[in-house]
Write a protein that binds this DNA or RNA. Structure first.
Length: 671
DNA sequence: TAGTGAGAGGTTTTT
DNA sequence: CCTCTCACTA
């Protein structure tokens, strides 16, 4: 008898990969990248090559014949997902582009458009942003007569905070009110009523706020075994990035998504959790193994980003945190430049120093785009922006007012929203109020007629309104909608019709319309990239700031520009040289966080995130606050609190050894 | 009922 | 400093 042995070509090491994973990754990274089946928790400190690991993991899976479409990459921003897919494609091939990915919210949007009917939604629902949500609450508040001065009922932004926190933390409104707003406990029943009206309002008009996307996704996944199985089967390999910034609801969704296979890798760093104000809970990381029994935990601790002196500093910052997973990040990158600490300057000098130092750094050969200035709140950079404009230093600013939130952009979008979802009452209301002589009352009457007819814009020229003094404007509006009826017409053509209609209103409404005009032009420009109105509108609502940032042309992004950014928007990024402004009590940590120890801890992590962005140079600046703007705040705490350097610096025991003190002197005017 | 002006109160971060 | 609210006027 003759024996035949079949060679197996499975098994580690024997397989032919086009990438040498062992050489490219360190042992922990390798372990994470090549572990495909099962549940994994990767605790990845700042700069430890987390993204790189995920990118190689995608490539590894694709090389193992896993269909890219069955890999789901949930990240904090869509940009992060796209960047990863791009990098995976560049190390392997185009197949990696077909990986599914995005934020929880955009993923929810995708599924809900498809399965809307399963849970009683229409697929053409509209996504409303925070401003719209507040607008709705304002209407409800007024209707319920809760807006009287003597009532001191929570205002619209507090209301949305309460409602949203309850949802994101998967808890009751009562708990949120008693935990965060105990002084409103007496208004608890009315808050519940408002919430109910709010929910009904949205439901009737097919409006979904950000939270609804998650709520309905969860509902969809729970609506039936068959749908859940279908979805779970499609996305067999799930990766969740920045897991420390997910909330309870997102964790529950993750569990449901993975119900069929339990192939989940969550990646995160508890020390970098900075989104608790919107319900994120870094304890999700700690709880992960209990959701997925048998979870394997992998720690990434070698830092590839920062030099040793910088890492010593950042380790010292997070060392002071009350509560964290013990971690010991180390770096092999040599460097002799300690972080530089500057104090004793005023805000003007701070700006002048930063601008000057930026120019010098550029002269040393560091491109502007590798330099960043970070700050706690957008307005902290105002002074610096002036200085930069004077010095002709080009920059982009991230964070702060977003493009889609600017009033004139929202005006423009309202017309398109009505086309897409004719019963979008918030959009209708907005565009009606734009007409001269129409206030809340007339708008209400017209709106009623329109909505009663399922959003029929022909009501605008109904005989009932013919005798109004602004009937010609209504005709003009009617004409606009008729002209956009043609479905074949490209989106940008519709946009142009809208702008034609809107321009006279726009120029009358805003004194500074010249400055704002640019935004409308770039909106038109952006619309040219879309075929479907629906995609355009969802993207504007869901896309992270960078592409739709006020004042940023899409073409700006490739240019050599200095980066100004809030710390929140700087997450996940890195620069050769980083300046952190306003390391002063009341600014960083911000005044609002001073009451609660938990909030202080979050600010500390925020500072940690900021400092860990630096590769080679880190400047920590603690100016003395002299401007009048801080006057109001200084009487709330002690009068001198605002010139006190941040506690996050003072609390570091060997701060002086870890830093080099920068002393600023002024040039002799005669020399 | 729409539009305006004075006055008061709050001032972050984002999908 | 900016937004929101209220009260007043046309």
């Amino acid at each position: 008898m003759k024996k035949y042995v079949l060679k197996r070509n499975k098994g580690e090491g024997e397989k032919l990969y086009s990438i040498d994973y062992r050489a490219e990754l360190n042992p922990q990274q390798y372990k994470a990248a090549t572990a495909t089946e099962g549940a994994y928790l990767v605790v990845a400190g700042a700069g430890t090559g987390k993204t790189r690991t995920l990118v190689f993991r995608v490539a590894y899976m694709v090389e193992n014949k896993i269909p890219p479409g069955s890999i789901l990459l949930l990240t904090f921003t869509r940009k992060a997902a796209q960047e990863m897919m791009r990098r995976a494609s560049s190390i392997l091939d185009e197949r990696c582009k077909n990986v599914a990915g995005g934020t929880f919210h955009s993923f929810a949007n995708l599924l809900l458009r498809k399965y809307a009917l399963n849970i009683g939604l229409l697929p053409n629902f509209t996504i409303v942003d925070r401003t719209d949500a507040e607008e709705i609450l304002q209407i409800i508040r007024t209707n319920l007569n809760l807006n009287k001065k003597e009532r001191r009922f929570p205002n619209k932004s507090t209301l949305i905070n309460i409602i949203s926190l309850a949802i994101n933390k998967s808890t009751s409104i009562k708990k949120i009110v008693s935990d965060c707003y105990p002084h409103y406990l007496g208004d608890y029943t009315e808050i519940m009523t408002v919430e109910e009206y709010y929910r009904r309002f949205k439901q009737e008009k097919q409006l979904l706020d950000y939270d609804d996307l998650l709520v309905y996704l969860k509902q969809l996944l729970e609506s039936g075994e068959d749908v859940r199985k279908k979805i779970s089967d499609k996305y067999r390999y799930i990766m969740v990035d920045e897991y420390q910034d997910t909330n309870r609801l997102q964790a529950e969704i993750t569990v449901l998504l993975a119900s069929g296979h339990h192939n989940v890798m969550a990646v995160g760093d508890d020390s970098q959790s900075i989104y608790s104000f919107r319900g994120a809970n870094f304890k999700n990381i700690i709880d992960f193994p209990s959701f997925f029994p048998g979870t394997v935990i992998i720690n990434l601790e070698q830092n590839y980003r920062s030099t040793r002196p910088i890492l010593d500093m950042t380790n010292a910052i997070i060392e002071q945190a009350r509560e964290k997973y013990p971690k010991k990040l180390f770096s092999n990158i040599e460097g002799d430049q300690k972080p530089v600490f500057i104090d004793g300057v005023d805000e003007k000098d701070q700006a002048a120093f930063v601008a000057q130092r930026i120019l010098e750094t550029r002269d040393e050969g560091v491109p502007l785009s590798h330099i960043a200035v970070l700050f706690r709140a957008s307005w902290h950079a105002n002074e610096l922006e002036l200085e930069l404009r004077n010095a002709n230093i080009p920059y982009v600013k991230y964070g702060g007012i977003k493009f889609a939130e600017a009033a004139h952009v929202k005006d423009t979008l309202a017309y398109l929203r009505v086309i897409h979802n004719p019963i979008d009452e918030i959009a209708w209301l907005r565009l009606l109020l734009l007409i001269d002589g129409i206030g809340p009352a007339s708008a209400g009457t017209i709106l009623k007629a329109v909505i009663a007819n399922g959003g029929d814009y022909h009501q605008l020229i109904s005989p009932a309104f013919e005798k109004r003094k602004n009937s010609s404007e209504l005709k003009r509006l009617h004409h606009l909608f008729s002209s956009m009826k043609n479905k074949q017409e490209p989106l940008s053509a519709k946009m142009e019709s809208v702008l034609d209609y809107y321009t006279p209103i726009f120029e009358k409404k805003y004194d500074d319309f010249h400055r704002r005009k640019m935004d409308l032009e770039s909106l038109l420009h952006i619309s040219e990239r879309y075929l479907k109105l629906e995609h355009f509108l969802s993207d504007i609502a869901l896309e992270p700031p960078d592409k739709f940032q006020a004042g940023i042309e899409p073409t700006d992004l490739e240019d050599e520009k200095l980066v100004l950014s809030t710390v929140h928007s700087a997450k996940g990024l890195e620069w050769h040289t980083v300046f952190i402004l306003h390391l002063v009590e009341g600014y960083f940590p911000s005044t609002q966080s001073l009451d609660e120890p938990e909030d202080i801890e979050e600010e500390r992590r925020l500072f940690y995130v900021a400092a860990t962005r630096a590769q080679k140079n880190l400047y920590l600046i603690a100016p003395e606050i002299t401007s009048r703007g801080s006057y109001w705040a200084s009487y709330r705490s002690s009068p001198f609190a605002f010139s006190e350097p941040s506690r996050f610096l003072n609390e570091i025991p060997n701060f002086r050894e870890l830093t080099e003190v920068g002393v600023i002197t002024f040039e002799d005017p005669l020399s």
